[in-house]
Design a protein around this nucleic acid. Structure first.
Length: 365
DNA sequence: TCAACTATCACATTTGAAAAGT
DNA sequence: AACTTTTCAAATGTGATAGTTG
């Protein structure tokens, strides 16, 4: 659902209502159905996620907020085209332990620290009819992670050295304000999207994988200009004025399989000023694989069965800080993905969550 | 006191959009 | 009006340094 300037104010108002309602603990149900929506989800960039997961995904968190990379991109199916749905994202703590990087691997390091109040991120397109959610990828690429507990910009507040897993909630509701009153929902999470929040990367392989895949980090790729220049500058200050030939090297094309563009397709889609791609409908973005490419097995995930232990904390609904009057910037059409890793394990089955209400999720009732 | 671990900051680099110039 | 160039904001990881902890 496109969000113009007129509706942006309404969106903000709804977010505030959601926030207030969630804190009130009211159990009324207004405008929401009694049954959870029948729904399926598929992780669109699961191959990339799995490559990170194989190593041990780390996500940088900063005071000002840092985007996730890879970002969470899913496609939804099975929704009633005419019904209205809201989609939310939550980052759930995995286990109740802290982690530390020791000896080249992550190891448990005691109990978890007290967590900030939970936050749910309402997708700015919400509410939107089912055909909107199923026709377009649902992307949370604008989500930012922070360790600033005083954050007021609606970023997800995480704790460093703790493990989290994103969860997507789909609620059938014509009014976003109804969500907080206990709307039944379908819930999806993917094992391969687990990550450990860090303030600085611990695993060099993660750093390399991020550099190779994140277009914004192009400058750091092998013999990237940044590295070479920095090195040459340093050596120059050390008294070695020998100009390096490397900086004049032509920019590396996206040569290796890990290279670029596999996440967002192009910077255009991730640019905060990009026009919403929904306006120029991309053909069959999520479901139909690019031609001439054998896609890795990407089955639809049923809703979850079980749920991670609720934190019993007041729910916060963070504002989508980058929600602009121009609407949500959908990602560009998927480029031809890199050849699937030969030994990429099949995606772990999504855990099914028996239908229950968000308030139940919060331990309110 | 010291070492290890963690957090923060300035920096150089990338990109695309908007603004300015031709 | 159309095209090109410049400027800007947002994004990235690096590396140095400061703070915390045991």
């Amino acid at each position: 659902m496109m969000m113009d300037q007129v509706h942006f104010g309404d969106y903000l108002l709804r977010q505030q209502m959601l926030h207030a309602a969630s804190l009130s603990g009211l159990q009324h149900r207004v405008g929401a159905d009694a049954e959870p929506p029948a729904c399926e989800a598929r992780l669109l960039n699961g191959d990339l996620w799995r490559r990170f997961h194989d190593i041990g995904t780390e996500m940088i968190i900063t005071k000002g907020g840092r985007r996730m990379f890879p970002s969470l991109r899913i496609s939804l199916g099975g929704l009633d085209p005419r019904e209205e749905y809201c989609v939310l994202l939550e980052l759930a703590l995995v286990g109740r332990r802290r982690w530390r990087w020791a000896g080249g691997a992550w190891a448990p390091a005691g109990g978890a620290e007290p967590q900030s109040p939970r936050r749910l991120m309402l997708h700015p397109d919400s509410p939107a009819p089912g055909h909107h959610w199923t026709a377009n990828p649902v992307s949370f690429s604008k989500l930012k992670l922070t360790n600033n507990t005083m954050d007021a910009q609606g970023h997800m507040v995480l704790t460093s050295m703790h493990k989290y897993r994103p969860r997507v909630l789909v609620v059938r509701a014509r009014d976003a304000a109804a969500l907080a009153w206990g709307a039944p929902h379908a819930s999806f999470s993917f094992n391969e999207t687990e990550f450990i929040a860090v303030t600085a990367y611990q695993n060099d392989r993660i750093t390399k994988l991020k550099i190779d895949n994140n277009p914004f980090a192009k400058g750091f790729r092998a013999c990237g200009q940044s590295k070479c220049k920095r090195k040459s500058t340093d050596s120059g200050s050390e008294g070695n004025p020998e100009p390096s030939a490397e900086p004049s090297e032509p920019k590396r094309p996206c040569s290796d399989a890990a290279s670029s563009c596999s996440e967002e397709g192009s910077l255009r889609s991730s640019s905060p000023r990009s026009p919403p791609l929904v306006e120029s409908p991309a053909p069959c973005l999520p479901v139909v694989p690019p031609e001439n490419v054998t896609p890795p097995p990407a089955p639809f995930y049923p809703p979850e069965l079980a749920y991670l232990p609720p934190l019993h904390m007041p729910m916060h609904l963070g504002l989508w800080s980058s929600a602009m009057p121009g609407g949500f910037p959908w990602p560009a059409p998927l480029p031809a993905p890199a050849p699937p890793a030969p030994r990429s394990p099949p995606p772990a089955p999504c855990r099914r969550l028996k239908s229950f209400t968000i308030s139940a999720l919060l331990g309110e009732g």
